[in-house]
């Protein structure tokens, strides 16, 4: 039960730190999960990849970390803990939003946060690359899927499937 309480506390805290969306939070999530001894950097990258292969919001790596720590109860605890604090805040602020939605400071704060979000998502990319690139094959897959996402309108799921297939076929070394 201590495991579930710790899971809830960690993910509730992460919920309120998740400015700039779920990807911006990945480095902090990986850092705290490693500090608690839940998953290594390599496992984190693998769980993130599995979560990306599932449909839905890009926060499902939270569910998988919970599942690794404490099974089904852990998965549900981590998911709820991650959703509820930010959800409550949104619920309350939604009613007040009209008061400051057009305030000049609101747009300035939001624009000012953009570079921070860029840095955090870039850090997430570096973290995942460091954990998942083991040689020229995986490097090519990562570079290829990044380029394809930027340059084409291919659905990301095809790029994940291509990476997985190349790997399973033993072509990545």
């Amino acid at each position: 039960m201590v495991g579930l309480a710790t899971l809830a506390a960690v993910f509730a805290g992460l919920s309120l730190l998740a400015v700039g969306g779920a990807n911006a939070l990945l480095p902090e999530m990986a850092r705290q999960a490693a500090a608690e001894g839940w998953v290594s950097a390599g496992e984190f990258a693998a769980l993130f990849a599995v979560a990306q292969a599932a449909p839905g919001p890009n926060m499902l790596v939270v569910t998988l970390i919970g599942w690794r720590v404490a099974g089904l109860a852990g998965a549900l605890t981590a998911t709820l803990a991650f959703v509820v604090p930010a959800g409550l805040l949104t619920y309350v602020v939604a009613g007040l939003w009209h008061r400051f939605r057009e305030a000049p400071w609101r747009e300035r704060v939001q624009a000012g946060l953009t570079p921070v979000t860029v840095g955090l998502v870039l850090s997430a990319a570096l973290l995942l690359c460091r954990a998942s690139l083991h040689g020229p094959g995986t490097l090519l897959v990562a570079a290829g899927s990044a380029a394809a996402l930027l340059a084409t309108r291919l659905h990301p799921l095809w790029l994940l499937a291509a990476g997985g297939t190349l790997g399973a076929a033993g072509l990545l070394g």
């Binding site: 990945l26 990258a45 990849a49 990306q52 998502v121 990319a125 995942l128 380029a147 996402l149 790029l159």
Partner: peptide, 15 residues
């Protein structure tokens, strides 16, 4: 491993 590499590439593209 291939899936993880592709997922890392997708986050890089997003960044």
């Amino acid at each position: 491993a291939g899936l993880a590499a592709a997922a890392a590439g997708l986050v890089l593209a997003t960044a």
